[in-house]
């Protein structure tokens, strides 16, 4: 897959944003939209129950969130959002991106 992926010329200089996912677990109604459509597969459904009895999402891959905000935008419950953290390594240091699950 990665052979088809053109490496940006400025990959060694541009620092892609690094995001942190924040989950307001008790607001979640377990629709799974964020898990399904996260382009980086950062999330999975937790086995825990929240106060309402739903399974909220949890972060299962650390350091790969790019704060694209899709989870926040698609969440019907206003229960998840991302913040950008400054200490991102240059893109070149990151693993090659995968094409699957590109954000719609």
């Amino acid at each position: 897959m990665s052979t088809f992926w053109r490496r940006p010329l400025d990959a060694d200089r541009v620092r892609p944003p690094h995001g942190e996912v924040l989950i307001l677990a008790d607001r979640c109604k377990g629709c799974e939209f964020c898990v399904e459509f996260c382009p980086k597969d950062v999330l999975a459904m937790s086995k825990d129950f929240n106060r309402k009895g739903y399974h909220p999402p949890e972060v299962v891959k650390s350091g790969v969130c790019m704060a694209c905000n899709l989870c926040e935008t698609i969440c019907p419950e206003f229960a998840i959002f991302t913040t950008t953290t400054p200490e991102s390594p240059p893109a070149a240091a990151l693993p090659a991106p995968v094409l699957e699950g590109v954000a719609p």
Binding site: I23, L24, A25, P57, V59, V60, E72, E77
Partner: peptide, 27 residues
Amino acid sequence: MTVEARPDYAETVEHPMTPFLRMDRIP
């Protein structure tokens, strides 16, 4: 690896839509 989503932090930071929503009516 499972990483905690830092619910403690989430409680203290406002959801970006808070200024636009009647949060006292959510859920």
